[in-house]
Design a protein around this nucleic acid. Sequence first.
DNA 1: GTGTCCGATGACAACGTTGTCAAAGCCATT
DNA 2: AATGGCTTTGACAACGTTGTCATCGGACAC
Lengths: 341, 341
Amino acid sequence: MTERVGRATMRDVAALAGVSIKTVSRVVNDEPGVAEQVRMRVQDAVDRLDYRHHLAASNLRRGGGRSGLIGALLQDVGNSFSAALLRSLEDAARARGTAILSASLDEEPERERTLVHDLVTRRVDGLVLMPSTDRQDYLSSEVRAGMPVVFVDREPRGIAADSVTVENVEGAVMGTEHLLAQGHRRIACLTDLPDISTAQQRLQGFVDAHRARGVHPDERLTVTGLRGPAAGEAAVSRLLDLDRPPTAIFAGRNDLAQGAVRALRRRGLGDSVAIVGFDDFPLADLLTPPLTVIRQDVVRIGRLTADLLVARLDGDERPPQRIVVEPTLVVRGSGEIPPSD
Amino acid sequence: MTERVGRATMRDVAALAGVSIKTVSRVVNDEPGVAEQVRMRVQDAVDRLDYRHHLAASNLRRGGGRSGLIGALLQDVGNSFSAALLRSLEDAARARGTAILSASLDEEPERERTLVHDLVTRRVDGLVLMPSTDRQDYLSSEVRAGMPVVFVDREPRGIAADSVTVENVEGAVMGTEHLLAQGHRRIACLTDLPDISTAQQRLQGFVDAHRARGVHPDERLTVTGLRGPAAGEAAVSRLLDLDRPPTAIFAGRNDLAQGAVRALRRRGLGDSVAIVGFDDFPLADLLTPPLTVIRQDVVRIGRLTADLLVARLDGDERPPQRIVVEPTLVVRGSGEIPPSD
DNA sequence: GTGTCCGATGACAACGTTGTCAAAGCCATT
DNA sequence: AATGGCTTTGACAACGTTGTCATCGGACAC
C-alpha cells in the first residue's frame, strides 16, 4: 500500500505486528507453536507490507548452503537440440522446486570455464554440462567439494562423472550403412570441430561402416571443423564442384544437414543427392524430400540427465554412471535416393 | 588437495594463511592496502583450499540485495521463438555479468504466478515476462518494491510497465491483404487461445483487412483457441472437409502454420491451398512451397527487451516505455498460390 | 498455596561475507 | 624522545534469516 523503498524484512513485519522476528519466521515457514491470533496478526502485517521471503538469506542460514539452483551449460540455447534439452530439464527440475540457470557455450572452451566458475560462485546445487572443452580436469575440485555434474551429449574427459550420451559411433554406422546399402560409394561426410567427441565418434562410425564393407571412403569428401549451417552449406557447395561429386551426404549434426539441404536445393539437386542427417529436428519431415535422420530421443536424454542429477542431489553415492542411449534410424525419403551414377 | 567435505570459507583461508578474515576478503576482492607478501600467502591458501567466493553471502552483505540474476518467463523455452529470445537475452545479460533464470509458462496463468513468486523470493534484479495471465495487477507490489519488469511479445494489462511487442494488427492485415489481393475470398484464420492479446490482435487484423476491401470473412473458417501444432493440423483437416473449403489459410502463430502445412501435405494440397504464417521460423524457407510469413525480428526484439531492462537496472526512471516493432512480409511462395476456384 | 508441565514467545548466535573504524606498526620529522 | 602521518591489519557489527535454548504464563493436580 504505502510507497516503500526496498523490500520489507522480517524485522519490519515483526515491528508492525508487535512480535519478535522469530515469531514472524515461524509464521512465514508455517511452523507450529504460534497462537492462532498471533499468526493472524503476523499474516496481516506480511500482507500489508508485501513481505517476501528472502530465499538466499534463508539458504545461507539453513545448513549446507543449498541454493535450489542448478546450472545448465549447453551448446546453444537457441538451437533446437539444446532448447529441447533445456525444456526437458526444466520440467524435471520444476517438480523439485529447483530453478535452472542456463547459458550457451557456443563451443568456446574459455566460456565454459568462466561460466562454471560463475555458477560455483552462485553455489548451484548441481550442474548439467554439454562441454566445449576437450578436458574437464578443472572441474575436479568442484566435484570434490560436492557439486554433482552430469555430462550430457558428450562424455567427460579427465574426470569421473555421470554422463548421458548417444551411441554415436553406432548411429553413424547405421546412417552410413543405409547409404552404402543402396549402392552409394561417393558419400560426403560433414562433421563438427574435430575436438568435440561426438564429432569424432560420428566420423569414426562413418569410416567403420565403410570398412565393414571393404570400401575405402574418399578422404576428399570428408570435411571436418564445420560450425553452423552456413559452413555446412558452403562445404557441400564446394564438394558439388568436384570432378566426381558425392552422390550422397552424411551430415554429422542437424545444422549441417540443414546447410546441406540448402546447398542441394540451390542447385536443384534436392531429389538427386541422398542425405542422411544425425539428429532429428522439427520440420525435418516436412522438407522435400523429407529428411532421413538418425534420431536421438531428446526428451528421454533430458529426463535421464535430470534423473541422474536429482539422484546425486538426493545423496546417491554410486560410482559415476555412464548411460548411453541408442539412436534410431528414421527413414523418410532423403536417404533412399539411389546413386546418380 | 585434501579430501574436504563442503566448501572452504574465508574463515578457513584466514586460519591457514594466519591472517584475519577481513584480510582474506580484501585479497579476494582485489582491494588495495594489503602487503604484497601477505597477499601472496592468502592467495596460496585460497588455491590450496579451493576457496570459492560465495556470491549470495556477498550480495546479502553488500546493500541493495542485488542478486545479479534476472528472470525470463517465456511461453515455452523449447519453442523456436522463445528459445531465440532467450538466447538473445542471454547475450545481452552476459555482458553485464548477469545470469538468467528461465522457465516456461505454457500459457498457464497459475504457473506464471507461482514462478513470479519464486523469482521474487530469489530476489531477481529484474524480470522479462511473456505473460500467460490476462491481467498482471498482481505484479504491482513487486514493481513498487523496485523490481523492473519488461513485457515481451504481449502487452501488460492492469499494470504500467515497459513492453516490446510487435505490431500484430498491422502484420495480420498485411498477411491477409496479401491473400485477398490474389483473389482469395475463402480464407481460413487460425489463432491461439482467445485471451492472449497477440491472438486477439492478429484476428483483429484478419477481420480489418477484409473490411477494408468490403469483404465479409466467413465465420466458419475462423478457428480460435488452438494450442500447438497438432491442434492446428486437426483444425485445418476439419476445414478442408467443408463443402466450400478455404482456398487459403492465415495461420496466427508459427506452430499453427506448421500444423496447417502438415494437414495440407497429407492431403496433397500443399501446392493448391495458399498459406501465410505469422512469425518466421527456421527452415520455413526450405518447405515446399517455401512458406510466406510475417516475420518478427526476434533478435531485435530480444535486444530491445534486454536494453530496456538493463536501463531500468541502471536506474532509468522514465515513464514506462512501449516499443512496438514493425513486422515484415516475407514472400516465399506458399502465399502466392492463386485461389483454386 | 505449591509444584509441575506445556505451549507460546523471544534473546541470541550463527550462516559467509563486507563496511566501518580503530589500533598497530613504521618511518620521518622536530 | 616525542610527534605526526602513513600503510597495514583486525575487531566488530551488520545483511536477512533460522536453530537453540531459556523464559514466561497459565492450566492442572495435589
